[in-house]
Amino acid sequence: MSRRDLLRTTGSALLVTASLSGCDLLATDPKGSAGDSRGSARTKDKEAPDLAAQVKAGKLPSLAERLPVLPGGRRISFDVEVASPALVPYWTDAMQLVRTYWAKVGVEMRVKAEDRALFYERKEANKPHATVWTGAGGREFDVMLDPRWFFPFSVESNFAIPWATWFTSNGESGLRPPATTRRQMELYRELRQTPDEGGRAELMRQILTMAREEFYVIGTILEEEGYGIMSDRMHNVPKSMPESHLYNTPGPTNPEQYYIEG
């Protein structure tokens, strides 16, 4: 069984080339509102109780029984690598919780905390089974400018690095990806050359639809809105602003026009 066949059988890209993100990345459309991609696990909400009832009634085997057995009778086993100290302090502890959830369905997952320099070295060499990182959160400027979680866009995608290298090198190096992934790449190149905002949004929706089916990334936690503390003497400061390294917060809000009074 090939790695991709195994991915298709289990329905989880986590086992081979995917990374876990810090946001429910597939729950948003290019304009930042909830879209039909929320069903990234391909099971409608109303169907889930039915499946659970069937398992309980013995009409459907449990997930542990349905998981493929590897040669030699071994069950699926994989590592999840976490940069340490983590970008978000609770990552390692959170993954220990996730480890116990996988164990309940017969999958052995090991949490591997490592120095960030080693994490990057291994990631760029395509060594990890799975990794943990933050996600874009679905903001339009993030999704279109840095679609790293929706197809192998760069080494920062954290998965399918040889495919990302093929994309960034225009096919000169790396590994040629399958047809669906290549189509995503073609659409993104077209998006970059499309002047019309509506046209760009439509192309991005197509990319996101394919990403949902390919299931490269599993979103785990959608972060709460953050906050900042501002003196009552500060003026001309927006009441809210996006928080993103791509937006270069707070740069586009023109801090040079903030002022202090009194």
Rank of each mutant, 00 (worst) to 15 (best):
R4E: 13
R4W: 14
R4L: 06
R4H: 13
D5I: 02
T10H: 00
T10K: 00
L15R: 03
L15E: 04
L15G: 08
A18C: 09
S19Y: 05
L20H: 04
G22R: 00
L25A: 11
L26Q: 11
A27E: 12
T28D: 11
P30W: 05
G32Y: 10
S33G: 15
S37W: 07
R38C: 04
G39N: 10
D45P: 07
D45C: 07
E47F: 02
P49M: 08
L51H: 05
L51S: 08
L51Y: 07
K56R: 15
G58A: 03
L60Y: 09
P61Y: 09
L63P: 03
E65F: 00
P68N: 06
V69A: 13
V69D: 14
V69E: 13
L70A: 08
G72L: 14
V80D: 01
A83W: 05
A86I: 06
L87A: 06
P89T: 05
W91H: 07
T92N: 08
Q96L: 09
L97I: 15
V98R: 11
T100G: 01
Y101E: 15
G106L: 03
V111H: 12
A113M: 05
D115V: 12
D115E: 09
A117D: 13
A117C: 08
F119K: 00
Y120I: 14
Y120A: 12
Y120M: 07
E121T: 14
E121A: 14
A125H: 14
P128T: 08
P128N: 06
W133V: 10
T134Y: 08
R139L: 12
E140M: 15
E140N: 15
M144N: 08
M144P: 02
P152N: 10
P152A: 11
V155F: 11
V155N: 11
E156V: 11
N158K: 13
F159A: 00
P162I: 09
T165R: 02
T165I: 06
N170Y: 04
G171M: 10
G171Q: 11
S173M: 05
S173D: 10
S173K: 14
L175K: 03
R176Q: 10
P177G: 02
A179Q: 08
R183N: 09
R183M: 12
M185G: 03
E186N: 05
Y188F: 04
Y188L: 02
R189W: 10
E190V: 01
E190S: 03
P195I: 01
G198I: 06
R200S: 00
A201T: 15
M204C: 08
Q206G: 09
A211F: 00
R212E: 07
R212K: 05
F215Q: 02
Y216R: 01
V217E: 08
V217A: 03
V217Q: 05
I218V: 14
I218N: 13
G219T: 08
I221V: 15
L222M: 09
E223M: 07
E223C: 03
E223P: 00
E224D: 11
E225K: 05
E225Q: 03
E225W: 02
Y227K: 13
M230D: 09
S231C: 14
V237G: 04
K239D: 06
M241W: 10
P242W: 10
P242A: 10
E243D: 05
E243Q: 03
S244H: 01
H245I: 01
N248K: 15
N248R: 15
T249R: 12
P250D: 11
G251M: 15
N254D: 00
P255R: 07
P255H: 03
Q257E: 12
Y259M: 02
Y259N: 00
E261N: 12
